[in-house]
Design a protein around this nucleic acid. Sequence first.
DNA 1: CAAACCTTGACACATCGATGCTAAGGTTGG
DNA 2: CCAACCTTAGCATCGATGTGTCAAGGTTTG
Lengths: 117, 117
Amino acid sequence: MDGLTINEAAETTGWSPRMLRYIERSGLIEPRRSPAGYRLYGAGELQRLRTLRELLAEHDMSLGDVGFALRQQREPALQQAVEAWLQTTPRRPEDVPAGDWLRWEQTKHERLLAAIT
Amino acid sequence: MDGLTINEAAETTGWSPRMLRYIERSGLIEPRRSPAGYRLYGAGELQRLRTLRELLAEHDMSLGDVGFALRQQREPALQQAVEAWLQTTPRRPEDVPAGDWLRWEQTKHERLLAAIT
DNA sequence: CAAACCTTGACACATCGATGCTAAGGTTGG
DNA sequence: CCAACCTTAGCATCGATGTGTCAAGGTTTG
């Protein structure tokens, strides 16, 4: 049977087994199960667990934040509603660090293409 | 002096004065101040306070969720990182309710236009 | 000036998010 | 079969959210 069991996955990703179950319940990463119900983490899941750690650490955000982003992706109506509300709040581009703004401009085109396809 | 004071604003929006201060500290709605430091809520703020209530109620989300969405809008680097992570998770369009998906398709064009301008 | 506001700050409490640990019971592999 | 793993469920903790209330001190206005 391919795939790491929960303790092995915990070992290589830096999460605790407890947290792997918690992350699963929160809908972020759901590994497949063996016939007996054992969680089996494949290469993809392990990678996403590692990058998830980095994401949270580097941007000071919570699992709940990622969960909400996921919800927005899955529920366009929600995404729309939030976007609509945000657009009623006054823009202030000075808030945005210069580097970020530049990167935004640079990648806008490809992001639009991605949205279309 | 135009603009409602905090108790008046609370009255017409349904939030408590306490929550108006809380919402302000969380960065969602920051009214301007009178010379003496009194909060003054204008028509725009009052409207956004009301729609904020609806947004939270109708989509079962928290102030923190909206705060995070705001952060994403203000920090494109964050937005990018989250989006990138989400894209590594397997898509499953069956998750999306049919109505939502339809609305998504219907409004995609205008959303793209909005993004470009 | 005095009543009725406003401000910040703090204490209080319920709920929730994030984690660990333990218990009772099934699975697996030498 | 037995040690070493896995599962779910539950209790326990600690910090963050959400919300009320009260205190000490400025402001406004009749």
